[in-house]
Simulated assay, not measured.
Amino acid sequence: MMQSPQFPPLLTGEAVPRHMDPFAKAVSRAIAGVDSGTVFYSEGPDTLHAALVLAPETPLEEAIQAVYVAQVGLAESLGALAPPEVPVHFQWPDRIKVNGAVCGSVRFAADVSDPKACPNWLVIGIDVPFIPAGDEPGANPNETCLHEEGCVDITPMALLESWSKHTLLWLTYFLDSGFERVHNEWRPRCDTLGKTIEYPKPGLFVGLDEKGRMLLREGVMTETVSLIEFAEHV
């Protein structure tokens, strides 16, 4: 019998059957009014699927910055559990990279899309593969999984427990002192910062502004791209 994961104070966990998507479950329960701080997760051994429900008290353009909080929480939890030589990076807007290859993603949804509107709920999900999806390890060199990167001793439930603790800690920092501290922690882990990128648009990724929007320079023009554009429609 698999032991239930332990969650920090202020967060509660709710397992969903393996055939169900915890993110979709979190959204449906958020619409119905579930408590903020509920984490929905599945107990499969091959991938960690989890989603956290939040009830922001700020406009969406501020609330969406919690997506970076979840990314930092995931990087810190992997850093705590993985061998010390395993680097964890971000690829804007939603990819997690381990040893330079994509190893999971973050997803998010809210009940509003207007940056100035205050959402009733915000759901942030993570998906992290532990074993290869296909038969051939290394078939796609741009994608990986934790077991291929030497993290064979980590279990999905251990990562879930660690992610919930680190994310709650960084949510506290974020609520207490705003985005700057989160930004300072996030920035060094973004491996496309300062580089010319093709996605979501071609240009030079020069950084994030104070609202967490991508600053993308092309020629003499700099435009902003918001995470809000990448929220899932529910």
Rank of each mutant, 00 (worst) to 15 (best):
I124A: 08
R95Q: 10
P119N: 07
G203R: 01
A51P: 04
L168K: 02
F108P: 08
I154L: 09
E85I: 05
E148R: 11
E161V: 00
V206L: 07
K195A: 12
R189C: 08
Y68D: 15
G219R: 11
C190Q: 13
D46K: 15
M214R: 03
G44Y: 02
G134R: 10
S162P: 01
A158F: 00
K211L: 12
S164P: 02
L122I: 08
D94F: 07
F108W: 14
P84D: 07
V128C: 06
E210K: 15
R181S: 13
K211A: 11
V112I: 08
D209G: 04
P132Q: 12
Y173G: 07
G150F: 00
S164G: 01
F130M: 13
Q3H: 12
N142P: 00
A51S: 15
D114S: 15
E136V: 15
E180K: 14
A75D: 06
A15C: 10
K116F: 10
G207M: 04
E76H: 09
A15V: 11
E76P: 03
H183W: 05
G138K: 12
T172V: 05
I197E: 05
T58N: 06
W92E: 06
C145F: 00
A109N: 14
H19R: 14
E161I: 00
A55P: 01
V123L: 11
T47V: 15
F174M: 06
S4A: 14
V39C: 00
L208C: 02
R95N: 08
S113W: 06
F90E: 10
V88T: 10
T196L: 13
A50C: 10
V220Y: 08
V220N: 12
S105P: 04
L160M: 03
V86A: 05
G207P: 03
F130L: 14
L215Q: 14
P200I: 03
S36W: 00
P17C: 10
G79L: 10
Q3G: 10
L78V: 08
V182D: 09
F230E: 05
E14P: 02
H49F: 12
P22Y: 01
L216N: 07
G203Q: 03
T192P: 04
C103F: 02
V102C: 04
T167W: 01
V234G: 11
K201Q: 13
L146I: 01
H89G: 15
E198A: 11
S28K: 13
A24V: 11
V72S: 05
R189S: 11
R95D: 15
M214H: 02
L175D: 14
A82Q: 03
P87Y: 04
E185N: 14
T192F: 06
E136N: 10
A66H: 09
V67A: 12
P115H: 04
D35E: 09
D135F: 06
P8Q: 01
P156R: 00
K116P: 11
A30E: 01
